[in-house]
């Protein structure tokens, strides 16, 4: 399986130049106060992983990998492990950059604010990936991309409409109770969601014909 994890990481490495340039651009924009690196980078990591699916599809990798020893069994596992490694790497990079930028801008580092925002962003990223991967394995990368776009934006519109008629304040107040436990809740939730997603993707991949 190590070989298959390497394959995804080497694919990411092939696009490293572009990633470093984007990192500097977003870092500069964050420094200028125009946007937050904390939100952009985790979503960039989603796009990076989706691009590996696109290359896999284009070169019919999934058929080829099934001809390798334990290829079908390990392919999905490797993709999720590469994702986790990328999430960890992204978290480390944005933490360092955020601390540096925050220090340059204000000479004060608000660790709690930085970490809670990072965990929130990484949680949202993991959630998005957890929905996307099974959809990609089931419907293919193009259909899944459109599907997720519809679900995310459709969901946002529906929530917006509902919020006009329903008072969410009690729910948000209830969530405030969790405020002191986010350091435990976010990582745990990420692990559980990714694990469930991995199991669903595994079931789909096991039965799929290429």
């Amino acid at each position: 399986m190590l070989g298959l994890i390497k394959k995804d990481l080497l694919m990411i490495k092939s696009n490293l130049k572009i990633l470093v340039i984007l990192l500097f651009v977003y870092g500069f924009m964050t420094y200028q106060g125009e946007m937050s690196l904390l939100f952009v980078l985790p979503f960039m990591s989603v796009m990076i992983m989706i691009s590996t699916f696109s290359y896999d599809t284009y070169n019919k990798w999934d058929a080829y990998v099934c001809s390798l020893p334990d290829g079908r069994k390990n392919s999905v596992r490797a993709k999720y492990l590469a994702t986790i490694l990328l999430i960890i790497a992204t978290t480390i990079i944005i933490t360092i950059l955020s601390v540096v930028i925050s220090y340059i801008q204000t000479k004060v580092i608000d660790f709690e604010n930085i970490f809670s925002t990072i965990f929130g962003a990484v949680f949202a990223t993991a959630l998005l990936q957890s929905f996307m991967y099974p959809s990609i394995y089931k419907f293919g990368v193009e259909k899944a991309r459109i599907g997720i776009f519809i679900v995310v934006f459709g969901g946002a519109i529906i929530c917006g409409i509902i919020s006009q008629f329903v008072d969410f304040k009690p729910l948000l107040q209830a969530l405030d109770i969790l405020e002191n436990y986010w350091m435990i809740i976010f990582p745990l939730a990420i692990i559980v969601i990714l694990y469930l997603s991995y199991k669903i993707s595994g079931c789909i991949y096991k039965k799929k014909e290429y």
Binding site: G3, L4, K6, K7, L10, M11, S14, N15, T52, Y55, D56, Y58, N59, K60, W61, A63, Y64, Y210
Partner: peptide
């Protein structure tokens, strides 16, 4: 059906 085309032959050896 083969490796994704952004890889290089050295990568294939490594994998």
């Amino acid at each position: 059906m083969f490796f994704p085309e952004i890889l290089i032959p050295n990568d294939i050896n490594s994998i």
